[in-house]
Amino acid sequence: MDSSPKTFLFDLNGTVIDDMHYHAKAWYQVLNNDLNANLTWDEVKVQMYGKNGEVLARIFGEEHFSEEEVEKLSEEKERHYQEAFRPHLKLINGLDSFLEKAKEHNIQMAIASAAIPSNIDFVLDNLDVRHYFNAIVSAADVTRSKPDPETFIKAAQKLGAEPAECIVFEDAPKGVEAAQNAGMQCVVITTAHPEEDFSQYNNVITFIKDYTDSYIEDYFLQEAGK
């Protein structure tokens, strides 16, 4: 790395918590049972990125639903998701210790996610980790979702950080692309995608299975705190 990073930007779903399977199940239920989209499980998983309204627009067309209908469907999908995932809600292995050590190193941290505010609150408050994060950027704060860099740029701006000072933690190719578009390097956690899904990006520092990985524990965090 050319300079020691001073800021960590975390995606939420699949990065802070391992919940993407539950989002897929919720979308599958709404799209097929409620909206008769007749999509396969794999087809649902491919569409599952960005804001909820963007997911619906990709599948049904831009003008198919009114804003009120999108809001209602979004609320229904998130109700299914939260009910199913709540018993399994926990941080990805090692993240609690990693966050505490980053805080001890005076590293600023933010959540930079396409999740809606209520889902971010669901995670941060139930797991009591809100105090680690100096800023939050949600779907409500941006007009363009990942891979557009707006989410990460806004998070950096809120923290007064330059792109070169930021390390993004992501689990999805679209998120890594957004970080690359923002001029930020990225650590990829392989909860949802294998390493080969990221071969086209040049901003990936390393791949980790979880936050006990020796690279970030023994080297990366120390470098970041300098």
Results as ranks from 00 to 15, higher is better:
97 S>R: 14
99 L>E: 06
100 E>K: 15
103 K>E: 12
103 K>G: 08
105 H>P: 00
107 I>L: 15
109 M>A: 02
110 A>E: 09
110 A>M: 10
111 I>R: 01
115 A>T: 07
117 P>A: 09
119 N>K: 13
119 N>C: 11
121 D>M: 00
122 F>I: 12
122 F>R: 05
122 F>N: 08
123 V>W: 04
123 V>N: 03
124 L>K: 10
125 D>F: 08
125 D>V: 08
128 D>L: 10
128 D>C: 10
128 D>N: 15
133 F>L: 10
137 V>P: 00
138 S>R: 08
139 A>G: 04
139 A>Q: 04
139 A>C: 05
140 A>E: 15
140 A>F: 14
141 D>L: 14
143 T>W: 00
144 R>L: 09
146 K>I: 06
148 D>A: 05
149 P>E: 02
150 E>H: 03
151 T>P: 03
152 F>P: 05
152 F>A: 02
152 F>H: 05
154 K>Y: 09
155 A>I: 11
155 A>R: 06
156 A>N: 02
157 Q>E: 15
158 K>M: 15
159 L>G: 03
160 G>V: 07
160 G>M: 05
160 G>P: 08
164 A>V: 04
168 V>D: 02
169 F>D: 01
169 F>H: 02
170 E>C: 01
170 E>S: 00
171 D>Y: 04
174 K>H: 12
175 G>P: 09
175 G>M: 09
176 V>S: 00
176 V>F: 01
177 E>H: 11
178 A>T: 03
179 A>Y: 01
184 M>L: 12
184 M>F: 09
186 C>H: 04
186 C>P: 01
188 V>T: 07
189 I>Y: 08
190 T>V: 11
191 T>D: 07
192 A>N: 14
193 H>A: 03
193 H>V: 04
197 D>L: 07
198 F>N: 03
202 N>K: 14
206 T>S: 13
210 D>Y: 13
212 T>Q: 13
213 D>P: 03
214 S>P: 00
214 S>Y: 12
214 S>W: 10
214 S>C: 00
215 Y>W: 15
215 Y>H: 14
215 Y>L: 12
215 Y>E: 12
216 I>R: 06
217 E>L: 03
217 E>M: 11
